[in-house]
């Protein structure tokens, strides 16, 4: 337990030294703020483009605050997920390929402790980035478009966070036995595949973690009462995360060095 804590501290130190602790939250803040601003200034932007037919500007209706907020969160499921996965792809495979995993694991650090420390480091980055990003999206939505019930926003952000955490955990699992680019590719592919399956056959896949972004969007646009309590996607997400961490620990115990 103590060793896990020490590895986690070392992990956070490295995160700070490689500027990840600054640049990832800044990217999330900018992504979150962009959607309300673009929505609000859309008439000006179209006018500046200068070749818009007359009727379009008059017919422009400002979408509601809930819609804008869910679009802002939607940015995190495209660019956000890409950034997080590309950051996480090195977490275990980098340590294996430069030999430091073998060094660390020959000390009294268990493979599980090592993987959990890595996972906790990724969780910290995600928590910080998503928290600040959602705060900036909420601030600009409130300033420009309209107010939102805060508890709904927090709940919607938490649902999104769980989905992003699933993608991060998958990356961790794949980077325990693959090179970094292959791990990133596979985890992006599997999360995109899950999202695609959910959008094609929602009734079959509504219990999977991929249903979380849709659930979060509905919560924002229709309110908490309309969505009700739906725990099965959260439960399956928790199981997926547990499976990824356990699988990565087993693999790290077996092959500390690449074959």
């Amino acid at each position: 337990m103590r060793n896990t804590w020490i590895v986690y501290q070392k992990e956070m130190l490295e995160t700070a030294r490689t500027y990840k602790l600054i640049w990832i939250p800044v990217v999330f803040i900018l992504l979150g703020a962009m959607q309300p601003i673009i929505t609000y200034y859309m008439p000006e932007i179209l006018q500046a483009a200068n070749n818009v037919p007359q009727g379009i500007l008059e017919g422009y209706v400002m979408p509601g605050a809930g819609t804008v907020m869910s679009q802002a969160l939607g940015q995190y499921s495209t660019i956000g997920i890409l950034v997080l996965v590309l950051v996480a792809m090195n977490s275990l495979s980098g340590e294996r390929y430069n030999g430091s995993a073998e060094l660390v694991l020959s000390k009294p650090v268990s493979p599980a402790g090592f993987v959990i420390a890595k996972w906790a480091g990724l969780f910290t980055i995600l928590f910080l980035a998503l928290g600040l990003g959602v705060a900036s999206a909420l601030y600009y939505t409130e300033q420009l478009i309209g107010s939102l019930p805060w508890m709904d926003v927090v709940a919607a952000a938490a649902l999104y966070g769980i989905w992003l955490l699933c993608a991060l955990s998958l990356t961790l699992l794949f980077s325990a036995f693959l090179r970094a680019p292959a791990a990133a590719f596979l985890s992006l592919l599997s999360s995109a595949g899950m999202a695609l399956a959910d959008s094609l056959m929602p009734s079959w896949f509504q219990w999977t973690p991929a249903a979380l972004p849709g659930l979060s969007a509905r919560l924002l646009s229709e309110g908490r009462e309309a969505v009700g309590v739906n725990l099965s996607p959260c439960l399956s997400a928790a199981l997926l995360i547990l499976f990824c961490v356990a699988g990565a620990s087993t693999l790290m115990g077996r092959n500390k060095l690449p074959k």
Binding site: L30, I37, Y41
Partner: peptide, 24 residues
Amino acid sequence: RVNWGLILPLLALQVLLAVIGLIS
């Protein structure tokens, strides 16, 4: 109609990001 007071902090963040990138 553009409220620059609202957008300025974001431009500052954008510059900060580029500066960190260049330092790194």
